[in-house]
Structures are given as C-alpha cells and as structure tokens.
Computed example of a mutant assay.
Amino acid sequence: MPDFFAFACELSVAARRETLRDLSTTLGLENKNPGGPFDPVSNADRGAERAMRELIVEAFPDHGILGEEFDDRAGTSVYQWSLDPIDGTRSFISGLPTWTTLIALMENGHPIMGVIDAPYLDELYVGCLDSSWKEVAGARTSLRVSNVRELGEARLATTDPFLFDGDAAAAFKTLYGSVPITRFGHDAYAYARLASGTIDLVVECGLKPHDYHALIPVVRGATGVFGDWSGGTDFSAGQVIAAATRELYEAAVEIMRAAASSVPPPKDGD
C-alpha cells in the first residue's frame, strides 16, 4: 500500500502539470451532453487523464483503468485505477479554486485507496484503509470528521440544488430547511472538507463511479459514513450521502429515502 500511495502521488503530480498549465482555459471546450444539461470537457481534462493513464500502463501494465474521458482499459490484475481528471470542470473553466482531481485504487471492484487533489489550493487528501490525512507542502495532518449528530447543527453541502428533480427536489428542500448552513458548488472538495471536520453532511444525486470511488476511502478513513439514500451501499443510481456520524447519516436517509426509488440512474453524458 505505501508503494501504491507513492504512485498515486505521482499520478496527481502528472495531472497537476496538465491542469495548472492553463488555469480556467476553455481550449477544446465541448459539451458532452448536447440537448441536455451542459456537461463540459476541456483539453485540460483530456490531457490530465491521458498523462495518468500513460504512467499506469508503464508501471502496472496488468492493472485496469476506469476513466471519465476515455474508454475503460481491461486488466488481468485484481487492481484497477479509477480516474476523474477534473471533478468540477465548471469551476475550473470559471477560474474558481475548488476543482479537484480524483484518483482511486480499486481491488476486486472496491475502492481501497482514494486521493482528492486540489491543485490550485495545493492540498492533497488521502484515504487508505482505516486512516485519512491531508498533505500540504510535504506536511501531513491526520483527518477526522466532526462529531455533529443532529441536522439542527449540521453544515450541509451539495454541488447544485437544481440537479435534484421531482421527489428528490422536494426531499432535498426538506433537508435544506432542517440545517442551519448549506454551501453549494464545491463538487468533490466538499467531501475533503467533511473528512477535515468543517462540513458535516453532503447529499448528491447523479454521481458516476469515477465521481465517488475516490471519496469513499477518504471519508471512511476519517471515521465518516458514506452510503446511499436508502441506508445501504448501492451507488448504482448515483445517490450519495456522506455524513460525519451514523446518527446524522440516518437522519438524512430518513428524509431522502422516499425519493430514492423515483430517481433514475445517471446516463452516459450526464
């Protein structure tokens, strides 16, 4: 695992070289979802994923690769790498600082190590087995979630409240009205802050595997809870709740559970 962690750091450095080269660039900008909600991809997305893929193929030719921008690469090992070169491309092309690169190591389909790298902020968040930590300028700090157990004390985050529709929108409105603070627009960075203890609850819909694979070890390694809207761990519908404590998670599930079955799973391009 230490060797894999060192390699994951190499991947994040390679991705940073691509993404930090032209901050907020719109070069090669395309909409991957024509006719639907705007889903942008830029040359920086493609370049960062391509750079990480090349390193993986060279170092671990038997490992599989699951990426956002290119076709999956089958492997012969029990290990796969899940890559999201820029999580928060809308923020990236708007010159906002909280976009991230997500890297996960999977073993037999389960994430065992996750990296949330915030290049512009120079913050690296790592979750591995039963611990999580943050690295800034080579200094490592252990991560632990808050001890908030009640919605009335919770700091809630979601990427965009307008992504919730129908019953899910109504449920999220109830959740929003149950907490004193809600922050929008931080994508995967919100989960890094949950692991750090400054956000207590994140609720999202429409996530794909590359969106959440890296988040799971980071949140759980910081003793947080990461589950679905029904109280389980089936993320195929893209419905995620991350919480600081079991009590807070169950309180959110009680509100979101009724909407779980009414939300279709995410489709390619969403």
Rank of each mutant, 00 (worst) to 15 (best):
P180N: 13
L194I: 06
V203D: 02
A170T: 13
A190K: 07
Y191H: 15
L194E: 06
V202W: 14
L201I: 09
T182K: 00
P180H: 13
G185P: 00
H186I: 01
Y191F: 15
T182N: 06
R193W: 13
P180W: 05
A171D: 02
I199Q: 02
F184K: 03
E204N: 05
T182M: 09
L207R: 05
H186S: 01
Y176Q: 07
S196K: 14
V202I: 14
V203R: 01
G177L: 06
G177M: 03
V179K: 07
H186F: 10
C205S: 15
C205G: 10
A170S: 15
A188D: 10
Y191C: 13
Y191D: 01
C205A: 15
G185M: 05
F172N: 01
A188E: 04
G197M: 03
T198E: 06
T174C: 06
S196P: 14
A195N: 01
L194G: 01
R193M: 14
Y189Q: 04
V179F: 07
F172C: 12
Y191N: 12
G197Y: 08
Y189D: 05
G185W: 14
A170D: 14
A171L: 03
P209Q: 02
F184N: 10
A190V: 02
P180D: 08
C205H: 03
D200Q: 05
A171C: 02
A195P: 00
P209M: 01
L207C: 10
P180Y: 09
S196W: 11
Y176N: 10
D187I: 07
E204G: 10
F172L: 04
L175R: 08
Y176R: 08
V179D: 06
L175E: 07
A171G: 08
E204M: 05
K208C: 13
Y191Q: 12
S196N: 12
L175F: 11
C205R: 14
D187L: 08
I181T: 12
D200H: 03
D200P: 15
I199F: 11
V202L: 11
K208T: 15
R183N: 08
V203T: 04
F184Q: 04
H186E: 11
I199D: 01
G177I: 02
K208F: 12
R183K: 14
V202R: 08
V203L: 04
A190S: 15
K173E: 05
T182C: 11
V202T: 08
H186N: 07
K208Y: 02
I199K: 00
A192D: 09
R193V: 05
V202H: 08
A170H: 08
F172I: 01
